[in-house]
Design a protein around this nucleic acid. Structure first.
Lengths: 136, 136
DNA sequence: CTGATAGATCAATGATTATTGAACTAATTG
DNA sequence: CAATTAGTTCAATAATCATTGATCTATCAG
């Protein structure tokens, strides 16, 4: 799915609710250890289901399941072998990863974290920053 | 948690099983929409629980829960107000985000995806790449 | 046509985890 | 001290989702 931003100002790029949703969806998909391992293997090049089964020691249908999730998230693509159509070849979607890494770097860029003092708390807030003590 | 790599060769940095596990753990934490929204708010600066409650329209204990998860993943830190110790101030852990974005960019870098032909499949594999047809 | 092969789909189970409401702490205020 | 306030912790519920086993679909080989 290709998302268009509701604004073209870079500073608001990562504020768009739909973008956040999409980012969360993809991160959740990648946050599953077995799927992350599949992605790691796919980085080494196109793989068929059976190769992943061998490498990960998992049931074929489970691999199938995770590949489907990855595919539905737009992160992985499938091709069918033209010579023997029983074989499926899975590969990473470069464009999707390009977009994802770009958004991720922006969203979590430490340099863009603001120093703002909280709007709530006691009036002592003004000088709080120097008095604060670490918890536990 | 600070992870040391079992190898110092850049090309193998993202191959380390422990690193993958840790990456998966953090991505899963960030893959929850409400938590991602919390992170988004924390990017605007330190926030107390109550501010997040207002901004996200969620129960305080639920915010507490998600903040704990973020904290246990090392992504968020807490401080207690020195003037009125009832207030807690949450902030993003810059060092952790630095490390995470770096690892993420490396791991999902499209440029590092190899073109390798699958080791399985029919003998026709050799010329497969040009014959392959897209599935659905 | 009959197996065998690669893999997907389906239904059921189990584990994880977000959410909710109630009770609890600790600190401040009157 | 009693009442508030900010926030956490705990137990219970509900929803999500990974895993498993069985079945199903194509496709290819004999």
């Amino acid at each position: 799915m290709q998302l268009t931003l509701s604004t073209n100002k870079l500073s608001e790029t990562t504020e768009d609710a739909a973008v956040i949703e999409q980012l969360a969806r993809q991160l959740k998909v990648l946050g599953e250890p077995n799927r992350l391992r599949i992605v790691q293997l796919l980085r080494e090049g196109v793989q068929c289901n059976c190769e992943l089964v061998d490498a990960l020691d998992m049931a074929p249908n489970l691999i199938s399941h995770h590949l489907r999730i990855l595919r539905e998230a737009g992160l992985v693509e499938v091709e069918r072998d033209a010579v023997d159509a029983r074989w499926m070849y899975y590969s990473l979607n470069r464009a999707a990863l390009e977009q994802l890494t770009s958004l991720f770097s922006q969203f979590f860029d430490p340099a863009r974290i603001k120093e703002r003092h909280p709007a709530c708390g006691p009036q002592g807030s003004v000088t709080r920053s120097k008095e604060i003590q670490l918890l536990l």
